[in-house]
Simulated assay, not measured.
Amino acid sequence: MKTRITELFGIRYPIIQGGMMWVGVAEMAAAVSNAGGLGVLTGLTQPTPEALGAEIDRCRAMTDKPFGVNLTILPSANPPPYEAYLDVVLSKGVKILETAGNNPKEFIIKAKAAGVKIIHKCTSVRHALSAERNGVDAISIDGFECAGHPGEDDVGGLVLFAAAADKVKIPLVASGGIADGRGMAAALALGAEGVNMGTRFCATREAPIHQDIKEALVRAGERDTNLIFRTLHNTGRVLKNAVSDEVVALETRAGGCEFKDIHHLVAGARGRAALGSGEVDGGLVWASQAVGLIHDIPSCEALLERMAAECRMAIERQRMVFASR
């Protein structure tokens, strides 16, 4: 399957495992890369830049295929040392960087000078065009169906992918709500040249999360996610469970709420503990509407091979439909 994305990153299939907090570790990224996709380590999952360097070394020991590192840059009163994390990526010779959030020009210049290819993740066409002007090599654009933060525009992938493809000239990757080869075929038809998946990779054998969480993703339907932080203008999509239900209830009560009222529910440490213990109602479990399309827990290799076959079948099926008219 040859597209500008496979050519840019030197991968067999145009399928990217996006950065996921607590999930994007060496075992996950290496499994995806070995299966022919692009595995991605999540930089800020590691507590220090030095720890990220060690994780890059671990990943390199598990795969000789290309892999990348995600660095999500967000405004904060006490930000992590983003540039130190970037310096580790560069010093370790990683050649693919997935960025999200803010995308400072000076970071782009520094990374590009080291021969790094940058794919920037965003949620709107206007932000995609800004990143393109700033010199990134590819755009990953998130539809409203995605896990994590879909932005505040509420534009679904069916429209957003096509709208971005109409404007963006560099390679485009469709992200959000994609879990099988049918979704990949649709994304390619809309003008994307690859897909990015997070939730689907969480329900694989190699994902470093508890089996009970994986099985909860399989049981969930397309309506089993919650939108949280809506009233705080920082919308996030998570699996529907006792914790996210309580967050929604607090946000929608008379008088609303402030972040301090829900912090104890949404703390990252609590969500990380839930992923490790398998306690589905123990914390936030970030998940997209793609849960409605997840019916098993395959290996990454089996998943990617199946997706490629499904994608080819979907394209061929449409060709035959039109040929018969």
Rank of each mutant, 00 (worst) to 15 (best):
I209N: 14
V159E: 00
G37E: 10
A30K: 14
C146T: 14
V266L: 04
A185K: 08
E106L: 13
V321D: 13
P81G: 03
V280C: 01
R205I: 15
Y82W: 08
S277Q: 07
I56N: 11
S124G: 06
D261W: 03
G135Y: 07
A164Q: 00
A254N: 11
K214N: 03
I294Y: 12
A100E: 09
R253Y: 07
G292F: 01
E152C: 04
N234W: 02
K117D: 08
A162G: 06
S175A: 15
D224K: 07
G43C: 09
G148L: 11
D245L: 04
G276V: 10
T199I: 03
L71F: 03
H120F: 01
C311H: 04
G198K: 05
S288T: 09
E301S: 12
G256I: 05
A274C: 04
F322P: 01
N34S: 10
S288H: 12
E7T: 14
N34F: 10
V291I: 13
A274Y: 05
N78H: 15
D261R: 11
I262W: 09
V195M: 04
S299V: 00
G176W: 08
R126W: 06
V159F: 15
E106V: 12
P81W: 08
L265G: 04
L44S: 09
A207L: 10
G255L: 05
H264F: 10
E132Q: 13
R272L: 07
F67E: 03
G271S: 08
L52C: 11
A147G: 15
D261L: 00
L44N: 13
D281C: 03
R253L: 00
T235W: 00
G191T: 06
A186Q: 10
L303Q: 12
G93W: 06
H264V: 02
K121W: 07
N226E: 15
T72K: 12
R270V: 01
H295P: 00
G151C: 04
L293E: 12
T3W: 06
F144E: 11
I262Q: 11
V32E: 10
E193H: 00
A131G: 01
R12S: 13
T225Y: 13
I139S: 11
K65R: 15
I294E: 11
G176S: 11
G271D: 00
Y85S: 13
K95E: 09
E316P: 03
S288F: 12
I294W: 03
V247F: 10
S140G: 03
V266W: 01
N78F: 07
S244H: 04
K260A: 06
F201T: 09
A267Y: 02
I5S: 05
D281K: 02
K105M: 10
V69K: 06
H120Y: 00
W22F: 13
V94E: 07
Y85P: 11
I170K: 12
D224V: 00
A186M: 13
L86K: 10
C59I: 12
C122A: 04
N78W: 09
L239F: 03
R133V: 05
A26S: 15
Q17L: 12
L158D: 02
N226A: 12
G278M: 06
L284A: 07
S130W: 07
T225V: 11
F67I: 02
R270N: 05
